[in-house]
Design a protein around this nucleic acid. Structure first.
Lengths: 78, 78
DNA sequence: TTGTGACTAAAAGTCCGTG
DNA sequence: TCACGGACTTTTAGTCACA
């Protein structure tokens, strides 16, 4: 699996766990609603700064998101 | 400290620990020599994909780089 | 509430060079 | 070996109307 796909899956997982809409996540992170949609569908390769902004709203540490992404990219096949 | 500055410091730290030149790091990661220089000087905001590419060459897990960056951005004030 | 195409502005990333 | 810069191409950031 490639990195942007994994990012999208992890992002969506945390967002849904917290019952936040794409729109509210976008607002909190200073991003656009449609951009969150693009990220979740693996259509964009976010910068590290964007990762940090999103992490803050999701109340999860950036390294934890990256760790989950690594697990999808390098280990798990699910 | 902002994220791109922290990224540059962490990147340079790991690169020097491993005695790799900017040029060899760039080659290994499929990037340009001058771009590594820009990153180390905090002049660019790398994508998450770039983080992963660099991590591979430095033989350090991406989440570990991010953790170090967090420590600089959120904790230390130097 | 979200997916999507189409778009412009901005930034990533390359390639040339110098000191 | 690296900092630094100009000029460049490619991709992301960010926005809109619409389904």
């Amino acid at each position: 699996m490639d990195i942007e796909q994994a990012f999208g899956i992890v992002l969506k997982k945390y967002r849904l766990e917290r019952s936040i809409s794409q729109e509210n996540l976008a607002f909190g992170a200073g991003l656009d609603r449609t951009y969150i949609s693009l990220l979740e569908r693996g259509k964009r390769r976010p910068t590290v700064n964007t990762l940090f902004a999103i992490s803050k709203v999701l109340n999860v540490k950036p390294y934890k998101l990256i760790e989950d992404i690594e697990n999808l990219v390098y280990i798990n096949q699910d």
